[in-house]
Design a protein around this nucleic acid. Structure first.
Lengths: 330, 330
DNA sequence: TTGTAGGCGTTATCAT
DNA sequence: ATGATAACGCCTACAA
């Protein structure tokens, strides 16, 4: 690997001068510059980015931590963070942590020990206190899920309001027995959405029925199972509010056999083409990722400036077919 | 940031001893070890990974380069590379390069200057010669698309055979006028699939009709446009072979208005739930990514060993509904 | 068993 | 305008 010293030797200057040329420092004579540039080309010099990072204690890299890249929501977040990073001449380092909260600290720590310039994280752990010691050293921005145990910027979507909107949509169509399905019970977003669901019901004078709240709907099998259990209840629900896109997608096949009016939180590709076409609360993950990434760079560029810590982006309901299953005439 | 020196000072030993303790070196007295470990905990010492990387010239990081994370195919590849990396105690650095081949060199160069341990790449550029100088320094493994201008390991799916299989499926159902749609004309995978398409036709004595070969089908709008142009031909095709999942997904809405028998290359989420349910050639991107990542580590662990350079994974046809549109009775 | 010296490649500081 | 020096944190080689 050619280093600056090699280039310097060939050009008959010091390493520092090569450094100056490479970094477009003004204070280099044009002819010196020319000689150095020639030498650089001759040796096809590429700087060792690690050495530079080591030197200034900061890598031109933004870390991205998401549960799962197969979820189009998080893929979109990662994608847009990456775009913004590239705009700023940086790279992204993406790590997925799965649904296992216990791994989170280890994996994120491994990432952060790389002297990243910033971090965008959608955590799965309910306690992110392990990030506190890093937060002074680099901007950390939460997306999709609020920080807990550490104070940091956060870009969230209106989980509670969105859930409420979805449930109200079902109520407006005459449904009274509305179930709630979600993937895992302890994900922060899931909790907020559950709150919104309950709020909508209680505002309409409907008593909460815990047997209507189902968790663990991760795939088609568990979705079929959940719907079967709901159908077996003495007063089976006529509608379902699905708390996240993954659960919504898993529900689609069962709905053909056992129709229920459904509204899901989170749009997904082809949601309008599946049968039934799914009515969803749309979140715009790309925008979320974009905001988060820009905040990282804002913080880097203006260390003193004060920013709003928590930004909640609105969501909107996209009406398609799945909400149109009629309630029983009473 | 606490360093080994800080820990050493507190524990009353040399930095080297701290290093030994941290790396589980045998030659440390239990009591010394205990003192050092206490000091490490007290200062909550985390090693500077960049310094280590700098020192041994190699980061515990595998690079992943894909065109686009929103494409579930590449998301799955990235996801499984990441899993294998984590298994080996490493992280992944994912960069997306979009469809712009000209950016590829720059972005990949930026990535590689970080002293990565290995690279898994699904290139968009038709010439990857810029990788030649890196290939001696770290294992580079191509996925999905074969290397050109550099020799490297490659894990590919059987593009030509898969396309042939898909077209033959349509032929077997009585179609004779079969169109080919793809995203971009110069992607290597697209070329192979076009070859397979042509081969299947010619083996069945059908003359090639270039007006049946459409490119630029990237989204629903361009898909509608392409189908309209096909329908306007003097002898409009009755079936379509779609060269990739993105194009196939884009085609779904038009097919409802203008039915054609369709087989697509590449499965996608919910393909069985959309209307019409899409018949596809399935590729298993997770397996592709897994193989590629493992090859990276195999190369790292056995620098001398010889490996098969090119591995082609089989594909299989998943029959659903979209292929069942009947050809006109003649 | 423990410690010292030196260097990986780059760049900030201070001279000249 | 250019150069010498030193330092970033860690680890290998060698010494004690």
């Amino acid at each position: 690997m050619t280093t600056m010293r090699d280039v310097a030797a060939l050009a008959g200057v010091s390493a520092k001068t090569v450094s100056r040329v490479f970094n477009n420092d003004e204070h280099v004579l044009p002819e010196t510059r020319a000689r150095v540039e020639l030498a650089m080309r001759e040796l096809s010099y590429v700087p060792n980015a690690v050495a530079t990072t080591f030197r200034n204690g900061r890598a031109p890299v933004v870390g991205v931590v998401v549960p799962d890249l197969l979820d189009p929501f998080f893929a979109a977040v990662a994608e847009s963070v990456n775009q913004v990073a590239v705009e700023h001449g940086m790279s992204t380092m993406v790590t997925t942590i799965g649904d296992d909260a216990r791994q989170e600290g280890t994996l994120v720590g491994r990432l952060l020990s790389q002297s990243l310039s910033g971090l965008v994280i959608a955590p799965v752990a309910t306690d992110n206190a392990y990030l506190a010691r890093w937060a002074e050293k680099l901007p950390i921005v939460f997306v999709d899920r609020a920080p807990s145990g550490v104070s940091a910027d956060a870009f969230l979507e209106d989980d509670e309001g969105g859930a409420r909107m979805g449930v109200e949509h079902l109520l407006a169509r005459g449904h009274r027995r509305i179930a709630f399905v979600a993937d895992l019970s302890d994900v922060p977003t899931g909790r907020s959405r559950l709150r919104g669901y309950r709020a909508a019901l209680s505002e309409h004078g409907i008593d909460r029925d815990e047997t209507y709240e189902m968790f663990g709907v991760l795939d088609r099998e568990s979705a079929a199972d959940a719907v079967a259990r709901l159908a077996a209840l003495p007063e089976p629900p006529t509608a379902i509010f699905s708390s996240n896109a993954r659960s919504t997608m898993a529900l689609v096949p069962v709905l053909r056999r056992q129709p229920h009016a459904v509204v899901g939180f989170g749009d997904f590709p082809m949601a309008d083409m599946v049968t039934p076409a799914m009515t969803v609360i749309d979140q715009d993950p790309a925008l979320l990722g974009d905001h988060a990434a820009r905040r990282v760079f804002d913080r880097l560029e203006h260390p003193k400036r004060r920013f709003r810590r928590r930004t909640v982006l609105p969501v909107r309901l996209i009406e398609r077919e799945s909400c149109k299953v009629a309630p029983p005439t009473q």
